[in-house]
Design a protein around this nucleic acid. Structure first.
Lengths: 346, 346
DNA sequence: CTCTCGGATTGAAGCGCTTCAATGGCGGAG
DNA sequence: CTCCGCCATTGAAGCGCTTCAATCCGAGAG
């Protein structure tokens, strides 16, 4: 204990303050049980020794830590950065710390971090996934102890809490906007069909198309949802637009949309003159595009915040906790890549 | 120990496998000391119980954990995301886990996370700062036990290891490029002078300017280094450019550069026709700008990787570790915001 | 057949903390 | 002046694991 090279322990503080070890622990965890004079003495001793309690020992003895872990699929996507921000704010308010892990959408990493957090006995885990398959693979497989809430993916309430965004509504919003501004020949650009959110966005799209009498020219399904995939799609769309077969595109992500717009304008197709393009996510990329892209904004911060609050509530409630599924609403952000109502009345 | 509701402990595994508790620990930590048959039995028992060792207990008993913590100033900056990626890769190779904390450049958060990591007894800490003042405030103030390496800021080798990028070289690269393409009346756009990297970039700028016979028209120092700050600067530059008083701008960040270019083109100033603009960082934003911006790329992944390797080496070496300062080299990335040599020979 | 040596295994002693039953001391009531 | 009750404090018992000195066992040497 007295080894001068190692960090001071609670015993050193107790000795210096002239109180028992239990009292020091009390000033740390139950200040109300300690007299003001004693608390003062102990505080002074702590300061003098630069005492910092050992988190592992605390967690071990107490049974749980004051840390919340979040697993994010992609740090390069500003949506998830927003999620992290929201979660951190909520955690901080509850006097917890947020630890971020980046899975890069790799199943192996997701489960590894899940295990790490579990071993660390974090107070709660926020698992952000955007792929049904990964959920299926992970949900049952990993022994877990901490409450876990799913972010971004709506999962059965029976299994866990979740916070998701109404992607069908988002799809409807985007499509309705196109229809409202006079577009009639629409294309949906999706991605791998295992991506749950994207499937729902497409459903929103088809709902509006059929309700409005517009034409669903076709759905394009690139291998990925990034800028380069968008470029390929856009290139393939040039002829259709020129021929008047397509006048509106709903893309499942902003990166996709940015790539499409880029390819289109590079081929001298006018956006939104000849074709409107809507994206999804309200990424920074949508802003930064040469033609700023209209998009559907996801409430990332709110999602993170709600997730952290749920997970902390579950940790507090213990056994008699009842899972909840929170569904947030996306909003339409109109920018330059879609024509206003006047521009199209031709 | 036998409580069926709580997670199984090492004792449960030992009982089920019919060996002692110490043996189970050995198969976990010193497989070589255990006979194959016993290891097999124990492994079976672990699998059966879904045993997951308690990280806190391990760390407490062993004295250190297999986690590396990294504190990042800004997750929205793709440079730092790259840094995290690099660090994670290196950590993973050494069989460690990376935990990310986001400080949002706020001193209070930086020191809070520093404390959290210290309490968690992580194997090492990567502290990414870009402000001298924060370093001064933090470096001495927080009791630390884990080896810490500074990222992004070159600090005295006496205090700790560091990995930084040669910002003066970067400034020279950017400026020389402008000079090489015929620009002569140059402006440097910086930021708060406490931002160490930016000061060095400016030094590189002035070095080249004076060596080349170009003119340092002036240095502009906005309050921040973001797009909006750039917009303000750009607006103020319009007249100078029109009057031929300025034909080249070196901006200290890409966001700044993007804002400048945006404001300039909005005022019908041609970029790079009338003025070239170079950014710094090779952010996604530089790519996404309507006029893709020439920039100086920082080796983010390499920085993270080197940092993680250093910190782990220090953890291994213990007392007889000698601090090292690694300096990485940035590279010039030429895009559309600067004129090629031919365009300017007028 | 006994002795020795070395690898495999054991079990107790912590790691630094929280918790909780037990103790101590003090003021007010009787 | 004594007794009771209550708040402040104490100290021992773990939390789940690693470590290490001690023990055990079997095989090869003599």
């Amino acid at each position: 204990m007295g080894n001068p090279r190692s960090r001071p322990s609670i015993g050193d503080v107790a000795a210096l303050a002239g109180v028992s070890l239990g009292t020091v622990s009390n000033v740390l965890n139950h200040p109300d049980r300690v007299s003001a004079a004693t608390a003062e003495k102990v505080a002074r001793a702590m300061a003098m020794l630069e005492y910092l309690p050992d988190g592992n020992a605390r967690t071990l003895a107490a049974g749980s830590s004051r840390t919340v872990g979040i697993i994010l699929p992609d740090l390069a996507n500003s949506l998830f950065v927003d999620v992290a921000r929201g979660a951190e704010a909520a955690a901080e308010e509850a006097d917890h710390t947020l630890m971020i892990a980046n899975s890069d959408t790799r199943l192996e990493r997701e489960s590894r971090y899940l295990r790490t957090f579990t071993q660390a006995r974090v107070a709660g885990i926020l698992l952000t996934l955007n792929d049904e398959e990964h959920y299926a693979a992970i949900a049952g497989g990993t022994p877990r102890s901490a409450p876990t809430v799913m972010l971004n993916l709506a999962v059965p309430v029976a299994r866990s809490c979740s916070v998701s965004v109404d992607n069908a509504l988002g799809g409807r919003l985007a499509t309705q906007h196109l229809v409202d501004t006079g577009r009639r020949r629409l294309v949906f650009v999706g991605g791998p069909t295992t991506l749950d959110p994207i499937r729902h966005r497409e459903r929103g799209f088809t709902d509006v198309v059929s309700a409005s009498g517009a034409t669903h020219v076709r759905t394009i399904t690139p291998d990925g949802v990034n800028r380069s995939d968008g470029w390929a799609v856009g290139t393939g769309l040039v002829e259709d637009v020129r021929a008047g077969r397509v006048d509106g595109v709903v893309a499942a992500t902003d990166l996709l949309a940015a790539g499409i717009v880029h390819a289109l304008t590079a081929a001298d197709v006018e956006v939104p003159g000849q074709v409107s393009v809507v994206g999804y996510d309200n990424n920074q990329a949508a802003w930064d595009s040469p033609i700023p892209i209209s998009t559907v904004a996801q409430p990332g911060e709110a999602m993170g915040r709600a997730g952290a609050e749920l997970v902390l509530a579950e940790a507090r409630a213990g056994a008699d906790h009842v899972h909840r599924a929170v569904v947030l609403e996306p909003t339409l952000v109109v920018r330059a890549s879609t024509a206003g109502p006047t521009a199209l009345m031709r």
